[in-house]
């Protein structure tokens, strides 16, 4: 049996707009992935700790508060400190185009802006997950 890709869907920051996070969680599930959903108001420390304990392949972050430039790099930095830089980190939400290069420099593999179909996220994950799902 093929091993499912494990994804942590997390909402850092204080905003409560989890429509996108929930839609993505369902879409990933329907694409056969195991989604660990952690709820609102997660600190970078909590997200990294959960990612490690759940041994996920992907961390998918959703944020609409505008705090992405502060919180996303903190998460990738903590992952690196824990030796978990093989986890694919992606982000989504209201993120201006001009912030994307900065975030990519800081280890966020891809940013999905509003209007991205869930199928694009699924395809991206399948193509880029580092610990490949194997037989």
């Amino acid at each position: 049996m093929e091993r499912p890709i494990r994804v942590l869907v997390a909402k850092p920051g204080l905003d409560g707009h989890d429509r996108g996070a929930k839609v993505i969680a369902r879409a990933l599930r329907d694409a056969g992935m195991e989604v660990i959903y952690t709820g609102l108001r997660q600190t970078p420390e909590q997200i990294v700790e959960a990612a490690i304990q759940e041994d996920v392949d992907v961390v998918a972050l959703s944020i609409l508060s505008g705090a992405h430039n502060t919180l996303f790099p903190k998460i990738t930095k903590l992952l690196k400190e824990r030796g978990a830089e093989d986890i694919l980190v992606i982000g989504g939400g209201v993120i201006p185009e001009e912030d994307i290069p900065f975030l990519k420099e800081h280890g966020i593999a891809e940013i999905f802006t509003p209007g991205t179909p869930t199928s694009a996220v699924i395809e991206y994950i399948k193509a880029n997950v580092k610990r490949l799902a194997k037989k």
Partner: peptide, 17 residues
């Protein structure tokens, strides 16, 4: 958001917000 959730601006949860 920190104001809406009852955190002062110097609270750790307010970082970046």
């Amino acid at each position: 958001l920190p104001t809406q959730i009852g955190y002062d601006s110097d609270h750790p949860m307010a970082e970046g917000e």
